[in-house]
Design a protein around this nucleic acid. Structure first.
Length: 479
RNA sequence: GUCCCCAUCGUCUAGCUAGGUCUAGGACACUAGAUUUUCAUUCUAGUAACAGGGGUUCAAAUCCCCUUGGGGACGCCA
């Protein structure tokens, strides 16, 4: 059984790149009925905050990525928060030291920094020179006396290592030039990310580690460490990174790409997932708009692109529009009403929303746009193009419209529950000179104040006869 | 600097594993036209790419090498 994990550190909000990693893990596991684990990597106590953990769980759930094991839901391999697993980590660290696979290192942080500076200056490879390995007993004693607390470093003796990556194929590393012994326990006694990850992946039975390409060069460390602890390393897959629209790297500080922000702007979770999946992956053929089941069924990690891809907000908008239009009228109303309630202050009740909302379904790309579009229902509006209202032909349309409306009201064709657009328009058409665009554009502007908008037919039920009368009169300058 | 990864339209990509069907296909965006009794939706058409150089081969977008360019890593962050 495939077991994967998404392991964010709660030091900021989830962004496009993070959620893509989570999505790909989820898709990869679910295709074969595997398990998706959520693990919180909060070994950096300085920067980890509970607030971020809560936010990230909310974002994951919103996207439809429920974890089978993790905080809140539990599981056999818990706890799933690294800060609650320190006992486990120290056991492993002790054992590695006992087995001479790791050692206490009394080299200070300052010395390490200096080592790096010098290497850069002499244009050599920047790596730890393992000097702490050969300190004499006396040297160690003197450092202890000076109050220096040791770190624990894992020994690397292997000169090279190759691995078969799920997305990149065979990759080999020249370890000699790359890494020295690395720290698995800080001077303050806390385990580092490298140790915690390896211990947890092994103990939680993780079979595949799918993560960003930025971890590719950590992988040799992780393989060596895992083996040293007596476990078989998982399979690795390193996803190419996502860049911003201009090719810049994504950052946790970029507001515009946080999942929270996408929610606020009215993207459908599934449309976002669909678009994100297309970033670095293609189902082949001409298909682009996929539902959740198709996504799950078709996704193939090995067909994922090996080069970085740039986030294109325009294409996201297009995808969102497509998914919005795919919704049934009922579903659209539900989703849109819920969105409006949560994020916008639109002064309309649910009954009104239900009659008005369907008109906008074909007309928007983001739910956010609804707020502006609803402006046509406000009685306090300005004409986008008042010139179109002033011609004799236009005035004729409005005068006739008023007359037709009056008749309709008198004969009961414009009652409260139904107000027929066709009857209204067909009543006007034979009696005026203007037709086509010359007829409908002035009418649209008179009625809504704008040159663009939903089909007039669809907004009539929400408008009602009285509002139409008022607006025709206003267009005529009668008040 | 060292190590690792990557390279097809402006962008996302198909094609590359098993070289010929590629005068390189689709999508977003853009432009033009059609439909819609108006705008949008929809439809049709158009502009636009194999980074460069060397090989291998009858034949290279596809395989190999070099150059160039981009990204990542080199933390007592994850």
């Amino acid at each position: 059984m495939i077991r994967v994990r998404f392991a964010p550190s709660p030091t900021g909000y989830l962004h496009l790149g993070n959620i893509r990693t989570a999505l790909f893990n989820y898709l990869f596991a679910k295709r074969t009925g595997g398990k998706f684990i959520l693990r919180i990597e909060d070994t950096d106590q300085e920067r980890s905050r509970l607030e971020f953990e809560e936010a990230l769980k909310e974002d994951l759930l919103w996207m439809g990525l429920r974890w089978d094991e993790g905080p809140d839901v539990g599981g056999e391999h818990g706890p799933y928060r690294q800060s609650e697993r320190s006992g486990i980590y120290s056991e492993y660290i002790d054992r590695l030291i006992k087995e001479k696979k790791a050692y206490y290192c009394y080299v200070t942080e300052e010395e390490t920094t200096e080592m790096k500076r010098l290497a850069l200056e002499e244009r050599r490879s920047v790596r730890h020179d393992n000097r702490g390995r050969n300190f004499t007993r006396a040297e160690i004693e003197s450092r202890k006396v000076r109050g220096i607390k040791p770190t624990v470093r894992f020994k690397i003796d292997q000169p090279e290592l190759s691995l078969n990556d799920l997305v990149r194929g065979d990759v080999s590393f020249n370890l000699d030039d790359m890494v020295g012994d690395f720290i698995i326990q800080r001077a303050d006694g806390q385990p580092t990310f490298h140790l915690a990850v390896c211990v947890d992946d092994a103990l939680m039975g993780v079979t595949h580690v799918i993560r960003g390409e930025d971890h590719l060069s950590n992988t040799p460390k992780h393989i060596l460490l895992t083996r040293a602890m007596g476990h078989e390393p998982p399979k690795y897959g390193h996803l190419s990174l996502v860049q911003g629209p201009g090719g810049e790297p994504l950052s946790k500080r970029m507001e515009s790409i946080s999942i929270k922000e996408f929610r606020r702007r009215g993207y459908l979770p599934h449309a976002l997932a669909n678009y994100i999946a297309l970033l670095g992956w293609s189902p082949g053929g001409d298909r682009e708009i996929l539902n959740w089941e198709e996504l799950q069924h078709l996704f193939d990690i090995t067909k994922t692109s090996r080069s970085a891809s740039s986030f294109d907000p325009q294409k996201l908008d297009w995808a969102n529009g497509e998914h919005l239009r795919l919704l049934s009228e009922d579903a659209f109303c539900r989703v849109a009403a819920a969105y409006l309630k949560a994020y916008k202050h639109v002064p309309f009740d649910e009954v009104f929303l239900k009659t008005a909302l369907p008109a906008f379904k074909e007309n928007i790309e983001r739910l956010e746009q609804l707020e502006d579009r609803f402006g046509i229902f406000s009685d306090d509006f300005k004409y986008e193009n008042s010139d179109a209202l002033k011609s004799a032909e236009s005035r004729e349309i409005f005068e006739v419209g008023l007359a037709v409306l009056k008749t309709m009201v008198e004969t009961g064709q414009a009652g409260a529950e139904e107000f027929c657009y066709e009857a209204f328009v067909n009543g006007i058409k034979p009696k005026v000179r203007a037709k086509g665009k010359k007829l409908f554009l002035p009418l649209r502007i008179a009625l809504t104040g704008r040159e663009h908008g939903p089909e007039l037919k669809k907004i009539f039920p929400a408008f009602g006869a009285e509002r139409v009368r008022l607006r025709l009169e206003r267009a005529l300058g009668k008040y």
